[in-house]
């Protein structure tokens, strides 16, 4: 199929039609923050962090396929403010005690807070009552830390198979629910996969401690997205 032309932040790029704007931006070294997005699984656009101006409208680029002559702004002050506010909302909505979290330093939510230099959320902390589900022999689900991105739900092997992870309830009562019968024989590999899918420390492998010391973790020294921004590739 012939290439199309799209404009990102004032610069024209040729791109494959139908490819998600997020992926095109990434290829050309433009980082657009994401949280609910996970490489290789169907995007859902629920965190809204990747919201950009597409032809003047606020749209999530993880779910929007590129079309010819599309004009995209990814990093205006207004958009960055929206993203920072969403990060603050998530910190206020859950119980994110970073110092006590195994994922600290490797957590995408925390990394975005670092990127946006969040010193304190502008919102009062809700301190909702949340449980920890430790019934599964291999993994724990700490609902306090869950940001309800649905990555674990969407990372399903075969669509026709019964779901392991699902949502329950609605609105601000929504939470992740694990089918304990179907996951009773989870092995280490699946447990690791589930943990890796989670952007925060909500899915944690049991009987596994801190591998990497604080200071050497993924986002301790380099901001999230810097790998994309530093690649400097142009098509």
């Amino acid at each position: 199929m012939s290439k199309i032309l799209i404009n990102i932040n004032g610069k024209d790029y040729s791109a494959e039609p139908g490819k998600m704007v997020l992926d095109i931006a990434k290829e050309v070294g433009i980082y657009i923050p994401t949280l609910c997005h996970y490489e290789g699984i169907k995007p859902q656009g629920s965190c809204r962090i990747c919201t950009c101006k597409i032809d003047g409208r606020n749209m999530t680029v993880c779910t929007t396929p590129a079309t010819h002559r599309m004009v995209i702004e990814t990093n205006t002050e207004e958009l960055e403010k929206i993203r920072a506010t969403i990060v603050e909302l998530l910190f206020a909505e859950g119980n994110h005690f970073c110092p006590a979290c195994e994922r600290s330093g490797n957590c995408e939510l925390q990394a975005l807070a670092y990127r946006y230099k969040m010193m304190v959320p502008q919102f009062p902390y809700i301190f909702p009552a949340k449980d920890i589900d430790a019934k599964n022999p291999k993994i724990m689900i700490d609902h306090n830390r869950c940001i309800l991105c649905k990555r674990c739900i969407r990372r399903k092997q075969e669509p026709e198979n019964p779901s392991w992870f699902v949502f329950k309830d609605r609105g601000n009562k929504v939470q992740i629910n694990l089918d304990h019968e179907l996951t009773a024989d989870f092995d280490d590999e699946l447990a690791q996969k589930a943990m890796d899918t989670c952007p925060v420390g909500a899915i944690i492998r049991k009987e596994k401690g801190f591998d990497v010391p604080i200071g050497s973790r993924k986002y301790d020294k380099n901001p999230i997205g810097s790998d994309i921004e530093n690649q400097g590739v142009t098509l």
């Binding site: 119980n95 005690f97 110092p99 006590a100 304190v120 902390y125 301190f127 909702p128 009552a129 306090n144």
Partner: peptide, 19 residues
Amino acid sequence: VSVGECAIMGGLPAMRNNN
């Protein structure tokens, strides 16, 4: 100046808040 997680969000002592 609020210094540290506990001053800013209650920190570990605040783990009782939601439990």
